[in-house]
Amino acid sequence: MKSAELIRVENLRAGYTGPVTGPVSFTVEEGHIIGLGGPNGSGKSTLLRAITGAARVFSGDIKKAPHTLITHHWQRPELPPELALLGRELFSLLGADPDKSSERIDSLLNMPLNRMSGGQFQFLQTAACLAGPANLVLLDEPTNNLDANAIGELSRLLDNHDSHRSVIVVSHEKPFLEKHCERIIELS
């Protein structure tokens, strides 16, 4: 791996009981935002899960730089119906700094999860990943469930990102990927 590379994926085929994605190769350098596009079932989420070890690698390789710290925002995160955990407490789990996040977060920090909408919870989780110490953030369909204002805030968070932090974004919304990503990898 080159020194600026955080992760190198080589000829990867990954899945669960059998391969559902790949072969695919790419690298992610420090500070870069990479988009993953492609139709439903092309294995975008599976590729992220292969990087985190939640999906099985059938062939190929994933190399991570030793100092890589990863957080992964899952697609459609389940909102626990009766958990009184505050937004602030969720942030602190990842060591995330609310001051590094958006103003929209302020109203969610002292709100328990059981009073949040699905969109608010999704935005909170995404913001926590981006405001934490991780230098590789994986975002799986982060614009799902978000209204236009929240998507705007998410865009601002991505644009203001730390120069050492890299992001891999999976999205169906090609304009969103084109606006924020240095490169877009299309899975077929």
Partner: peptide, 10 residues
């Protein structure tokens, strides 16, 4: 609970 693959990822 909230980041199920955090431990395996790191």
């Amino acid at each position: 609970r909230f980041f199920p693959d955090y431990f395996s990822a790191n």
